[in-house]
Design a protein around this nucleic acid. Structure first.
Lengths: 358, 358
DNA sequence: TTGACTTACGAAAGCGCTTTCGGTAGCGTG
DNA sequence: CACGCTACCGAAAGCGCTTTCGTAAGTCAA
């Protein structure tokens, strides 16, 4: 481990060169595996570099090469809302993939009084990043507009409503909710309600569309007040669900599709609080696959997505764009995995039949 | 907005200099507000820079100055466990504070087969970062050992069991759990159990210590099996709580202190699942102040900490260390805020008295 | 042995910015 | 008018690395 050697105070290529009696250029080429270096010299140089704890200065290298090898990421500015459970996972995947290729991830936040585009512009303009990844995409997203005209390679996790000419990767939210409705319909549910999210966020919009389309196509019944928008966390979900529960029993939905697991958990609490049984009187379905969904009672049926892998794929994509700038926009669609658990059962399931498994 | 000007392809100081008929040195000094520049010239230069969309190259500047202006952060490698709800908040606060001072945050992850110290060493050694922030600190933490001998300024969120000679900031976990026990004792609880976390993590160890000390000092009763270690998520919490519930009613705890809100929620599910009432038969208390704690039923009493502010303070501290390397280690202790809600009541509370508020 | 050709390396010019040093013009003072 | 002084700016040397170009030695065929 080079880490055990004394600290790399000023170990430069120049010092290595003097130490070995070679020129700086030779050292550089030997370390970077250029072809026109004698095998013997290369090994001698690399051995010395290892032993003396040489580490290239990334600023110098970047300046000389004119490349950046850094990807930018701006944290979504939703401080008021739930701390996004994906974010850590996605960042982890992204950072891992970048680290494997010796690229860096530069993370920034949006200070009060600035907007996201200002921050992106600052990072791009000062040549601090050579590419960008953005997440939590809105249907119309100024960040995408900016990046599109900036010429900087970028990858969008999620997509806008006009996702034609840039690279993105996304869960097939619409299909996922279509699958969810199919699943509920097969079990016999007809009256299916939906707690939808912030309609300016595209993932929420797409799930909502999937719900509406599938309900129309598969003969579900959307009663008055069945579709509630703007539910972003467990607290607002609880209120909204209580409104649903105030509908007379005949018109009340037997199943509830929730835009996220957090919303689903809020809904479950409201149902339990009203003395009704989740998965018996009302089936509840979430989206995300949060670990907590396995611990609530009954365990939450959900549409699972692997955020870590999404982050890694975003990393691969943006690296591809950066290293081969002529490459065409690439788009990847993932399918969410329907994970049946105890919170969804056929309507009218008696307590005895109630599936307790996880 | 400079963003509306044509892209900054090759707008360098050299071009500015030619354009204005000045030397490069003058441009640089004018832009950086050196004293020996005529006011008129300074304004002329800054105006031209703005209009031509000049942005300094950070690599060049860093190379010339020999400073880094970047803080490193390595994402905790707990992929198997819960995605830490703080992380996003802390990162947000940290990145915000750094952004306000035009510093950058470099985030890395730990690829399979490497450990955290390798990653830190790589970032420090290649001069990519000038300071470090670490989180999720263990009682004995190799990262701290490494950073201590490396000479790099760093701040630890949390602390090790030997927190004497470096900078850290932490919640007073021990005091928080002492306060929690006091609160429960004042309400009349005697038999108080504790779901503790991974004992190698110092926050969990400290909370556990607080529980043990306070129980000894305040005359609580710790029955057999009351203290359960290694509970890190809602799922394991559910199992552990079921074990507690299997104790005969006379010896069963009337209150349950949980190392985190996620654990508390798992415990609540187990209690509800056993047909008992949270806040009636057994009071439950968490730690974190997650939003979801307000949505569960009954609402979760918890010890609240503001992760965003912790992140910002970490940023301030590490900036202080980096800009004034001679400054002494600084240590900040925060108090968690006890937030009473409905999940905790005096023992033997009848359903009628049961506080339903949130 | 000579010529052309390959191999392996040194010399040196950058990359874009900072900063020290020195010099000129303008000012005031005696 | 000579002197010193300040204010302002240009020249130039880096920061540590990359890369082009050139060249000396080594290889091979004729």
């Amino acid at each position: 481990m080079s880490r055990s050697t004394p600290r790399n105070e000023t170990m430069s290529i120049a010092r290595l060169a003097r130490h070995l009696g070679l020129s700086e250029g030779t050292i550089s080429r030997a370390l970077n595996n250029y072809p026109d270096i004698a095998e013997k010299t290369r090994e001698r140089v690399q051995k010395a570099a290892r032993e003396l704890g040489y580490r290239p200065s990334s600023s110098a290298r970047r300046l000389a090469r004119g490349v950046i090898e850094t990807i930018g990421f701006v944290l979504p500015t939703c401080r008021t809302q739930h701390s996004d459970p994906f974010l850590a996972e996605i960042l982890n995947g992204l950072a891992t993939e970048l680290a494997l290729h010796d690229w860096d991830l530069l993370v920034s936040a949006v200070p009060d009084g600035q907007n996201e585009v200002d921050v992106i512009d600052r990072l791009v303009g000062s040549c601090k990043v050579g590419g960008f990844v953005i997440a939590r995409t809105r249907r119309h997203d100024a960040r995408v507009d900016y990046l599109r005209q900036s010429g900087v390679p970028f990858v969008v996790q999620g997509r806008t409503d006009d996702p034609s000419d840039y690279s993105w990767l996304d869960i097939d939210n619409e299909q996922a909710f279509i699958d969810a409705v199919s699943y509920l319909r097969r079990l016999g549910h007809v009256k299916i309600a939906c707690l939808s999210g912030d309609p300016t966020m595209n993932f929420a919009w797409q799930r909502r569309s999937g719900y509406l389309h599938a309900m129309a196509q598969q003969g579900g019944h959307i009663g008055v007040g069945y579709l509630i928008d703007g539910i972003t966390d467990a607290v607002s979900a609880k209120d909204a669900t209580n409104r649903l529960l105030s509908i007379t029993e005949n018109d009340r939905p037997t199943a509830l599709l929730c835009v996220t697991d957090a919303v689903a958990i809020g809904a479950m609490q409201a149902i339990n609080g009203a003395g009704l049984g989740v998965g018996r009187d009302i089936s509840v379905m979430g989206f995300d696959g949060l670990p907590i969904g396995q611990a609530v009672h009954p365990a939450l049926t959900t549409l699972h997505q692997d955020s870590y892998e999404i982050g890694r794929e975003a990393g691969r994509m943006v690296l591809g764009l950066c290293t081969d700038p002529s490459s065409l926009p690439k788009q990847t669609l993932w399918q969410a995995k329907l994970t049946p658990r105890a919170s969804v059962n056929p309507p009218g399931t008696s307590p005895a039949q109630h599936n307790q498994g996880g």
